[in-house]
Write a protein that binds this DNA or RNA. Sequence first.
DNA 1: TATGGTTGTCTAGATTAATAGACATTTTGG
DNA 2: CCAAAATGTCTATTAATCTAGACAACCATA
Lengths: 240, 240
Amino acid sequence: MVERQIGVALWRQIADRIRLSISNGDYDATGMAPPETVLAAQFGVNRHTVRSALASLADEGLVTAVQGRGTMITRKERLNFPISRRTRFSQGLGNQARDLEARLLDHAQMPATREIADALGLAPGAPCIRLDLLSSADGRGVSCSTSYFSAERFPQIAAHFATLGSITRSFAASGLDDYVRASTEIVARHADANELVLLKLSPGAIVIEAQAINADLQGRPVQYSRTRFAADRVKLTIET
Amino acid sequence: MVERQIGVALWRQIADRIRLSISNGDYDATGMAPPETVLAAQFGVNRHTVRSALASLADEGLVTAVQGRGTMITRKERLNFPISRRTRFSQGLGNQARDLEARLLDHAQMPATREIADALGLAPGAPCIRLDLLSSADGRGVSCSTSYFSAERFPQIAAHFATLGSITRSFAASGLDDYVRASTEIVARHADANELVLLKLSPGAIVIEAQAINADLQGRPVQYSRTRFAADRVKLTIET
DNA sequence: TATGGTTGTCTAGATTAATAGACATTTTGG
DNA sequence: CCAAAATGTCTATTAATCTAGACAACCATA
């Protein structure tokens, strides 16, 4: 059932198992998780251990416990992130989560590498600005991203983002009112050490990496980004 | 660096980080892991905690500690499992591990579902035999598989496997001397609860699932199997 | 051979995780 | 309104994990 002394706390193993059951629809009949005492018996642990697991799931926004009634399942599915020509991070997740946040981790000006120059249509070595972002929904890390912009065209992008907290609004403040997704490439791989920490993933977790280029309405690239999603928290839907 | 109170023991987080460094080739210059005291300082933990991490890696056969010298890296790469027309589990892993084992977890006779009947070229509902196997290398779970065989053609397959410990030899004992891989489909997904336990994976780990059909030299399907590999321990090489 | 650097082992203590039990509080339904 | 069933809270205890320090054993090499 659950294993001891493998370096993963019992409550964590149980939380992962319950999360899986929720997403498998095992509790769809009632919309409630089984009572704590039942889960405790099922997993062969103390009720307090189950409570720790449920508390962590409540923290993720998956369940809500109500005294006297039971533990309701409040979100079953993964966050669905639609990818289309008009992909916007905050719009896309929209009403799927209460609390959306994009935090600026780091930024710097740097010469464009070959890869970046190709993507943005710049000369290799041209100045570009890098933004490292961490996006969270309901206080839980959903994705971390690295974006590149032409430093010539968007010199204030970092400052704008720091105050506005959104790429779309930062573009608007830079005089770019609209933009579209020009291309997206998607791969899946294991999270590296940095991503494990940023997204608070379990060891061995998967990230889905989307390499995207956004362009203005004239088709000129304005943003090249590599976004790494926590694969167990999101579902990407490609809209054509 | 490493995080506390997330339900994953420090030594486990550190072991995972070091394993990643090894497979990334970070220590290729010397072929040795950094000294325990250096690692301890690097991760901000006590030397004993690092020792627990290294002990677990030694248990996996990745490193070997030698008193006075240091900790040598004894296996860098993932187990490479070649997939070709003549795929054989034990042959494929061959000299990459000292100790190969395939254990029969369960077996049963059952009517073929639509999926199984299609794969094996049987009528739906025809009797078939299911074998659940767990394969290990150096005492560490590498894959678990579910295989289906025609009960009419291979009535003794389970008994043969139980004594012979190999599908190839079980086929031989049933009068089938040679067979080839007819088709293979590969997907990656999160391990389910059962796989987590069988393969002793971390919560959230990936499995690579290979759905394969083996056929005799006349092209008649003889085995339909779904093998789930621990994605962080193997690499599949498709040989065409 | 002596020295510095490394792993191995031991003891002790602090912190965190898990168990155990009792009882309060709230909701639901007869 | 009462009883059953569920979550919330509290205390106490045990087990596992991590820290701290000291020293032994071993290897390489100057």
